[in-house]
């Protein structure tokens, strides 16, 4: 394949990565934004989503779409409930102290991950996509005979991958409406601004925190359900999304939601493109170093405002 078509292919892969990443990172960002805590177990809620998606999807026979839709509803719900319970049992009791929350969520990470190992097992398991039509893509060139349209071999994507991108945009739009147009969003933003004042005005801050923590986990789980038809479910799969979400949230500015989306597209696309042309390990080394240096020299992120 020539460079041009190859780049297009890489960009498409990157767009899928970016879509999943935007959902997952958004969960982390909302939790940080509203509650001011770093959830190190975030990647494990992603993993829970994937594992439950597999469990739900494989319990349905017949059309894979039915199982998939069921998974899309059930997995985020269960992940959200587990997160809300963890918030109530653990985080609330350490008063969201930043340091102790990090230690507690590290503990939570291992509890969830190892429980998955004990129940789900060490094997990677696939989920059948609800639809998976292969779509060949055209490429345009200006050759000797003028403008021509070619169909390079290997330049293709699947209908499912396009669906993932559309679905992510839909969920994020819904989230935006929730945050800006509804009472629940108003309450969340009020809590984010000043939790003590919000409390004084009758906002049940503790319950809001539980919902927000659940919502964050749910978003990660949605991302995971979307990803399992492409990438298999595995008990250790939470590690990379956690790292990448961290990177996105930091580059985008801690707690800034538009920043998170932009950074997710940036990181997802460049990760996809760099991984196609270079070694994925090198791409990750560069990404982690960039994040560390951004935090050192631009602690409010590239787009974040000074608090």
């Amino acid at each position: 394949m020539d460079f041009g078509p190859h780049l297009l292919l890489a960009s498409l892969e990157g767009a899928v990565t970016a879509a999943i990443l935007a959902l997952t990172a958004m969960g982390l960002s909302i939790v940080f934004g509203v509650m001011r805590v770093v959830n190190v177990a975030h990647g494990e809620f992603f993993m829970i989503g994937a594992v439950i998606a597999w469990a739900v999807a494989s319990s349905f026979t017949g059309n894979p779409a039915i199982g998939f839709i069921a998974a899309l509803i059930v997995a985020p719900l269960i992940a959200g409930i587990i997160a809300a319970v963890a918030d109530k049992l653990i985080l609330q009791r350490v008063n969201y102290d930043p340091d102790r929350t990090i230690v507690a969520t590290i503990g939570l990470l291992y509890i969830i991950q190892q429980t998955a190992l004990m129940t789900f097992g060490p094997d990677a398991r696939p989920v059948t996509p609800p639809f998976n039509t292969r779509l060949s893509l055209p490429w345009f060139e200006i050759g000797e005979s003028g403008f021509v349209m070619t169909w390079p071999w290997g330049l293709s994507t699947t209908s499912y991958k396009l669906f993932v991108i559309v679905a992510a945009i839909a969920v994020l739009t819904g989230l935006w409406v929730l945050m800006t147009r509804t009472k629940a969003g108003l309450i969340m933003r009020a809590t984010q601004q000043d939790s003590e004042t919000a409390q004084a005005f009758g906002v049940p801050v503790k319950r809001v925190y539980s919902y927000v923590f659940g919502l964050g986990a749910g978003l990660a789980a949605v991302g995971a359900v979307l990803v399992v038809p492409i990438q298999q479910a595995h008990y250790l799969m939470g590690h990379d999304p956690l790292l990448l979400s961290f990177i996105v949230v930091i580059i985008g500015g801690l707690g800034s939601l538009p920043g998170t989306v932009i950074a997710a597209i940036l990181i997802g696309m460049s990760d996809g493109i760099i991984s196609v042309f270079f070694s994925p390990t090198l791409a990750k080394i560069i990404a982690t170093l960039v994040v560390a240096l951004v935090l050192v020299f631009r602690p409010h992120g590239l787009l974040g405002k000074k608090v």
Partner: peptide, 20 residues
């Protein structure tokens, strides 16, 4: 069990809660 890190997780959570 092969999930021995579960113990580490439980211990971490219990420590933060009860014996910081």
């Amino acid at each position: 069990t092969q999930a021995y890190m579960l113990i580490a997780g439980v211990v971490l959570v219990l420590l933060t809660l009860f014996a910081p």
